[in-house]
Design a protein around this nucleic acid. Sequence first.
RNA 1: GCGCCCGUAGCUCAGAUGGAUAGAGCACUCGCCUUCUAAGCGAGUGGUCGCAGGUUCAAGUCCUGCCGGGCGCGCCA
Length: 586
Amino acid sequence: MNIFADIEKRIVAALDALKIEGQLPDDLVLDGIEATPPRDPTHGDVASNAAMVLAKAARMKPRDIADALATKLAAEPDIAKVDVAGPGFLNLTFVPAFWQQAILAFREKGTEYGRTDLGLGERINVEYCSANPTGPMHVGHCRGTVFGDALSNLLAFAGYDVTREYYINDAGGQIDVLAKSAYLRYREALGEDIGEIPEGLYPGDYLKPLGASLAQQHGKALLTLPEAERLTIVRDAAIPAMMALIRTDLADLGIKHDVFFSERSLKHGNVDEVAATIGSLRAKGLVYQGNLPPPKGEPDADWEDREQTLFKSTQFGDDTDRALLKSDGSYTYFAPDIAYHKTKWDRGFARMITVVGADHAGYKKRLEAAVRAISDGKGEVDVQFCQMVRLFKNGEPFKMSKRAGTFITVRDVIDEVGRDPIRFMMLYRKANSPLDFDFAKVTEQSKENPVFYVQMAHARAKSVFRNVAEIFPDLTATSAAVTGADLTRLSDAGELDIVKKLAYFPVLVAAAARAHEPHRIAFYLYELASSFHGHWARGNETPQLRYIQADDKDLTAARLALVGAHAQVLATGLAILGVGAPEELR
RNA sequence: GCGCCCGUAGCUCAGAUGGAUAGAGCACUCGCCUUCUAAGCGAGUGGUCGCAGGUUCAAGUCCUGCCGGGCGCGCCA
């Protein structure tokens, strides 16, 4: 159900009729015709570009096509007015009943209103967060995590079969650093004075409980073990401990992954999937021994020409070939990541999205190349970047120092501002734009704070139902009196404005899903809330416009149907963003 | 040097598959509380869409070249 798509079909039908009548060439291809809300609402309810896109192929003036089409459409009973404007825009104005009836459709669908079948049930894998298991999440992880989660919600709502995935980088050098850092905390827990944490190790206090638990479990036994053996034990305890911290943070942000995929699990038993993947690429002639040219520009004194095992990513559009093995023979980060993406392909995902930070910009092309290579061009990964978050406190930049261990954790931010404002603010911006996050502003309860503004629109709508209970106790949101109300009573322009915005919701969901841009939902909700607040305030001056009319139960019921639909769409949209839709804000 | 991202009102940002006179919030000016939540609403001021070409009936949007900013650029993940 999508009103605008229906109108497009009606326009096409009218054009077909014109063809039959000989007013248009009968071989004219009716393509690219749109029906959209006009930018200026005074132009009408719906605008179409039909005449202009067809003009060339029809070898006619746009105005002539528009005039013929206008005459045709004006004859339809629910179209009140058709104007031809500008170069050939067709502006349609529908009779109020057209919009009034639309509310029925909103209600019929309920929480499903806005859902589309765009994805056709196709499986899609969304990988996001994937913070290294070396400590709690810091605020920098937050944006991509929230983005990936909301994008997953959006795609699911748009008809995709979404799997949310977290890639645990538990096999790289940073894990050795973690183990060494944890071992130090273990010695500390045994009573040793460890002094300053050496440069290069993780100084954070969060490793202290891990040290203590190791001490409790092993006593002094680890001290006498050979280093390799001892670090293996520490590491195997540290990774789950760090993941437990991260999972707590994720839970508090309202984020749930379906799959936690361990990099280490790529090697199991005698199977090394990384080696196997490199082998399969080699079989395709995409792996070779060679030397990479140094980057141009500033000459690098440390540059050392060396032969490496390389992947021919240039064959798939990358700028340079990429190393798979380090000079000591171990894997680069890239090699297991290819193997990991191959498991996605093997698990039946032809479509993948990977959300990364802006500092991974250079990773996009090689990953796309790798996915094409392992899937013989049939698979596709969209690497989505989230730009940096700049932290502010009362307008002053807020610096993090990782070295001093004083970085801001997700926990700090949740404790300070709460989950809903974090999520909404992270999504109230295109992912590609840097984002300023001011602790003071996001907790403010005012119009300046869009989270609050949208939530208040929902709370207000709910308050109407609370208040009506005192006058018409039987007019509950789900009562037959409300769901079956006489909608022709809704005639005010402000009411119809809200209806028209609600009608646009399915179009918006589809567009946002197609573009992988959940922020559009946030902006839409703000606009919808604005229409609602505006109409509400008009009720302050003009009591007849208020939703509850004590002397007119039927009118009240009709208006409640609108309020209910409005609250429903707000709740649905907020759910996509993972933000709460509170009943009240007191 | 190369790649990716960004450049829109004084500030922070939207701008749908290319559509009409480019929008919102903040700031500034002026109205509105005997009120279903004024935690709000309305009106006004404010623009060479970084610059220059090109494609198109139509360009903030697409293409090319510049300028400015951010991120990255063979064994960090």
